[in-house]
């Protein structure tokens, strides 16, 4: 006889039995041993049909092609830049993937991007050994200037973005900040000092309480209670662009530097 032992979205620990019997299938972050399905991480367990899954509450970022991340230039080579990705693996960005402009052979690459600069980039390729290739040659990818950078656990990124970007839109709107969320947990905020501080606090609050229900309402209340004066907004309203799932695209005005 099969049965599900995990309550919907309850906190489970590694090794906790989630379901018994062969009617269920082990999904993300679980494993089967004999007739039992166990959790492989600390997370929130739930059944999705016959599949038992666990959403991790924390954990390292695993680089994936197509992910937009924020990295830091840590070295300049002949052919491009080495980028710290806030993981165990640094990435290489070739000159031809960084800019569509023609780069002369003897050109000083540090004039384009210097060590210590931060960049919004997209992962184009990841090998089995986690060697990572990056590009900056698409809309919404650029070198960062000003504002502030904060870091959260990468597992909380989907919660910060919210369903179809609802959470992040709300924070942008109430704080007047431009916000770019990297899938590696690095987030860039740019607005007034007060707006940036409020946005940072709201994001940290989401990170802390990502396991709780009704988070969007709680954050709305928090933002309402801590209101900051907003700068006048351009009324084109087109700076929010959603792509599929958790991905979130940012405006392009600073692209292609």
């Amino acid at each position: 006889m099969s049965s599900i032992l995990v309550q919907d979205k309850s906190v489970v620990v590694p090794g906790e039995i989630l379901a018994e019997g062969m009617d269920y299938l082990p999904g993300d972050n679980t494993y089967r041993e004999n007739d039992k399905i166990y959790s492989k991480v600390l997370g929130l367990g739930y059944p999705a049909g016959r599949v038992i899954k666990v959403t991790p509450l924390a954990g390292p970022y695993v680089p994936k092609p197509g992910d937009k991340i924020i990295g830091k230039i840590i070295d300049i080579a002949f052919s491009g830049w080495r980028v710290n990705t806030s993981t165990a693996y640094s990435a290489m960005m070739n000159v031809k993937d960084a800019t569509s402009r023609f780069i002369k052979k003897e050109e000083d690459l540090s004039k384009i991007m210097a060590i210590g600069d931060h960049v919004v980039v997209k992962i184009t390729n990841v090998t089995s050994q986690n060697l990572i290739d990056l590009t900056m040659k698409e809309p919404g990818l650029y070198k960062i200037s000003g504002g502030r950078l904060i870091t959260i656990d990468s597992q909380k990124v989907p919660r910060v973005i919210g369903k179809k970007g609802s959470m992040i839109s709300q924070i942008k709107e109430k704080t007047g900040c431009n916000i770019t969320v990297g899938q590696n947990g690095v987030i860039w905020l740019k607005g007034s000092p007060e707006g940036e501080l409020l946005a940072e606090k709201a994001i940290k609050l989401i990170e802390q309480r990502s396991h709780q229900e009704g988070l969007t309402d709680k954050i709305e209340k928090f933002l309402e209670e801590n209101k900051v004066p907003l700068p006048e907004r351009k009324s084109n309203g087109s700076d929010l662009k959603e792509s599929e799932g958790n991905e979130y695209a940012e405006e392009t005005e600073e692209g292609g530097q």
Partner: peptide, 11 residues
């Protein structure tokens, strides 16, 4: 280790 989200079969 569990708190860090490291994949673990058990405690």
């Amino acid at each position: 280790l569990a708190h860090a989200g490291i994949p673990m079969k058990d405690l």
